[in-house]
Amino acid sequence: MTTPDSAQWDDEMAAPSHAVEFRLPAHASSVAVARRRLRLWLGTRECDDGVLDMAVLVMSELFTNAITHTDSTEITCVLRADEDSVRVEVRDQGCKPGQPRVRQAAADEESGRGLLIVSSVTNRWGVARDEHGTGRTIWAALPTAAV
């Protein structure tokens, strides 16, 4: 079994500076690993602390949703950056019925605010099905001039 800390970056040393991809087991403990990898990667890009914090928050929400709302055994993360934005993509392997959507959680609910948070801290986000129609990619873009 692959643990989150033993999972390897895909082409870690050969990855172009503007993008990186990695895969992690679909376990709650992998969320922290995904956040740490995002923080390390953006740290090499001299990213503004505010953008870094918001990107880490987005990663947490999207990765957690992929674990909670799919039947995936593995989650793929793709990070991209250019002069204007940072893009976080989270790909799952298998969807349960339904489409990700922003919803209004009741004040006493402990969950249900993830995509509302993503929507409020990004300039755009979306969902794309994979070519087989079983999995999906949820992505979010954060504006930045510091990247």
Rank of each mutant, 00 (worst) to 15 (best):
G94Y: 00
E110K: 10
V121A: 14
C95P: 04
V118G: 15
A26L: 08
V78Y: 02
L62K: 08
W125D: 02
A146I: 11
T137Q: 03
R35G: 01
E21R: 13
T70Y: 01
H132Y: 13
V121P: 09
I117V: 15
R80P: 07
T70E: 04
K96M: 12
E61I: 01
D108T: 15
G94W: 00
G112R: 10
P16L: 04
A107C: 04
T70Q: 07
G135T: 02
G50L: 13
T73H: 14
T144P: 10
V102H: 10
C47H: 12
Q8S: 13
P4V: 03
P143S: 12
G98T: 02
L142H: 15
V31H: 01
I67N: 02
A14W: 04
E109T: 10
D49E: 12
C95M: 11
D10F: 01
R80S: 14
R39F: 05
R45E: 11
Q8Y: 04
P16I: 03
I67L: 09
C47V: 13
R113N: 13
R39L: 03
V33W: 10
A28C: 06
N123R: 12
V118K: 09
W9V: 07
V127W: 11
V147N: 13
V58K: 09
S119E: 05
A145L: 03
L62I: 08
A32P: 11
A55D: 09
S72I: 13
E21T: 15
D10V: 06
G114C: 12
L38H: 05
S119Q: 02
S30H: 02
A128M: 15
V56N: 01
V102P: 07
H18G: 15
L40H: 15
R136V: 04
R45I: 03
H132E: 14
I75H: 02
D11L: 01
C95R: 12
S6F: 07
R36M: 06
Q8N: 07
W139F: 07
G50Y: 09
D82I: 05
A107W: 03
E131P: 03
W139R: 01
V90H: 10
L42K: 06
A145Q: 12
G135F: 00
A141E: 15
S6G: 05
E12N: 08
W9L: 08
H132C: 06
G135M: 01
C95A: 06
P143E: 13
T134I: 06
E46W: 07
